[in-house]
Write a protein that binds this DNA or RNA. Structure first.
Lengths: 213, 213
DNA sequence: GAATGTATCAAACGCTTGTTTTAAAGTCAA
DNA sequence: TTGACTTTAAAACAAGCGTTTGATACATTC
């Protein structure tokens, strides 16, 4: 006889479904993921998805969690270091969330996926996660270059920084074929963060100098 | 009575199928594109795909054409300008192929798509298009920084440059929502190319200085 | 203990996908 | 004109998808 109460069992099924869905969605994206695979890996009947979440799309929406990404930005703003240092910290933590296999960071990878494969919830993701991050980086860039650049140039600087970071996640299948020996362990991520940081700070300074010679 | 000969009619069907397939695949990617939509837009019977190409995948492979991308690299190497100038030219032309709505440039966009959505022909694409481009950029970087950086650092420099470029294509759905007024006309692409060029050259110089102080 | 509401399950539904079949139409040389 | 061949066409096929159904087992309440 099973001793657990009814509610704990229910939540167990629901939570297991959510946990597996997060993994599957982040692995294969929304469209490519199938309800059947999620249920199989969660050892749950197919009908459970519609029973607990009413649809695949609602399950996908329920797996979204932008807190790690937003708290990352907040935490970095709390420190009293200079803007350059804060940018370096952001790049490092952002890359960690993007590339580390940590299950808590997985949420952040939706952002990278969503860029290439828009789903019905793209609007929500842009509004609640991507836009704040872009604004956060834009503010940092403004501080670093001293508010002297145009809006268009500011936008391009933000794209340059985020583009470098996201490429590692986005182009992973290709990178793996180009450099099969490459692994994203902590040391490698650290090196990438330092590279992008130095590269970007130098770029920003050049842009600032160009606009105000 | 139709006056055209048999062979010209055949080729017309085949070619029309190929032309439409190129557009549809570049619009929606491989998986999302359907044989039915391609045939409908080409005003051709569904069975034509398997009759002329034997499968959807073979049709997709037949639409691949990396010549524009490879001739771009060759053409830039032919000039006798310095490496920095050649890098700026590459960034400009690469962005044009990535962002311009020119139908000849559409082929190049497969590369960006393939990064995020690997298909059965990814291996061929990497081998014949992506790897040569990476190598081309790596050679330019080597010339610019004077061969003084490690293999890992060289790889990261290439990623930084290509990552910035590809982001504009890759994140287009998101960018469109963040900046609805933004259009990729020739003037805008020109500005982006100048930005990425300056940004990257400054970054490369900093990396070179770091490694050899 | 009967009634009620919840959770699970196998099965099927309706739909779309890529692919195949089968027959008809057209082409062209002998 | 006949016969061989290529091209087109509508229909059907098998497989996969998200979703729904209806029955069953269970826990809780009266």
């Amino acid at each position: 006889m099973i001793t657990e109460t009814k509610t704990s069992l229910n939540e167990q099924t629901r939570e297991r479904l959510l946990a597996v869905a997060r993994v599957v969605f982040s692995e294969n994206g929304f469209k490519q993921s199938t309800v059947r695979e999620i249920c199989r890996r969660a050892e749950v009947n197919i009908a459970a998805v519609n029973y607990y979440f009413s649809s695949k799309e609602a399950l996908f929406a329920a797996t979204l969690n932008f807190e790690p990404l937003l708290t990352l930005c907040k935490k970095i703003n709390q420190g009293s270091v200079c803007a350059q240092e804060r940018l370096l910290n952001f790049i490092h933590d952002f890359l960690m969330q993007l590339l580390d296999k940590n299950e808590f960071s997985m949420q952040c990878q939706f952002m990278a996926r969503e860029l290439a494969e828009p789903t019905p919830v793209l609007g929500k993701i842009v509004q609640e996660a991507i836009a704040p991050v872009h604004q956060f980086v834009a503010n940092l860039v403004c501080e670093i270059v001293g508010n002297k650049i145009s809006e268009a140039e500011l936008r391009r600087c933000v794209f340059s920084i985020l583009g470098q970071c996201v490429y590692y996640r986005h182009a992973q299948p290709v990178i793996q074929r180009l450099h099969p020996q490459l692994r994203y362990d902590h040391r490698e991520i650290e090196s990438i963060a330092i590279h992008i940081g130095e590269f970007s700070l130098a770029g920003l300074k050049k842009i600032a100098k160009n606009q105000c010679p």
